[in-house]
Nucleic acid binder design. Structure first.
Lengths: 153, 153
DNA sequence: CCTGAAAAAACCTTAGG
DNA sequence: CCTAAGGTTTTTTCAGG
């Protein structure tokens, strides 16, 4: 893994916050001229520091403003059941994140639904069809206090 | 709130996945010519469907690949303590997300640290200095199974 | 690492259908 | 909604220090 300096880090911060900044603007921010700034951005992209550029969408306006944190226990802890579970999780749109976790539960899901009614339907009719699931525990998000959409550096 | 059609939805999906697509490419994908495609994107931006454009960074390469889900109970449940807590949370870099939640705990944090050692230091020296906190419970992420970095539509 | 120039591409607007 | 044109800006490359 290669090294990055303060200017690279600043570029990453700036682009994380606003991917539409032009090379000219970035160059000014890091006190370099256009060419080296451009080269740095390309290097950060090529070396994988920047995974991709994405539009951050408004979940509320797209009927996905109801966030639930859902913990899951598998019925049986073997490889094939786990693989089966993962395969199904990947196909479910409401699940935006899934982590294999330590503790009493096996998986942690972040679910984005329209509202409580939608979530109930999701639990019964979507999760309910995932055979590997033993039990679930839902925690409801009442308010989003902080969401950096990335790293704070 | 205005309505969006299938083409708008497709634009949002495409841009969520890759914000660097040109208007020409987007136009081709939704089978429209350049001008209306351009107008649609601007409309989606202006009406707030697109909150911003961001570079998605590689947490691993930036020494933030160790993810912990941390639940927090406040000492006292009054407005000033809550506000105080929130104000401090916003300033802590390792905390990338924070939600006010239902259930036994009051807040849910997603923490990105370098490694366990860094996390331990974070719990003792950073969270340890947040006066409002009554108790914490850490759940460690062993593997990221799914992360859409947005909505699945 | 830098400056500066310049080609190529994309953006954005406007006019007309 | 479309095409087409044209100015502006940005991207990208390249020569030379």
């Amino acid at each position: 893994m290669e090294n990055i300096d303060d200017k690279d880090l600043k570029l990453l911060k700036l682009l994380q916050n606003n991917a539409k900044l032009t090379v000219k603007e970035l160059a000014r921010e890091i006190s370099l001229s256009l060419s080296p700034a451009f080269e740095r951005v390309k290097r950060l992209e090529n070396e994988g520091y920047i995974k991709k550029y994405a539009a951050i969408l408004n979940a509320e306006k797209l009927n996905r403003g109801f966030t639930v944190l859902c913990q899951i226990k598998l019925k049986i802890h073997d490889k094939s059941v786990g693989n089966d579970f993962v395969k199904q999780i990947l196909k479910i749109d409401e699940i935006v994140e899934c982590y294999n976790i330590s503790g009493d539960y096996d998986f942690f899901l972040k679910v984005q639904a329209k509202d409580m009614k939608h979530y109930q339907d999701f639990v019964f009719n979507t999760l309910g069809c995932v055979d590997a699931i033993g039990s679930t525990h839902s925690t409801f998000v009442m308010a989003e206090v902080k969401n950096s959409h990335g790293l704070n550096m």
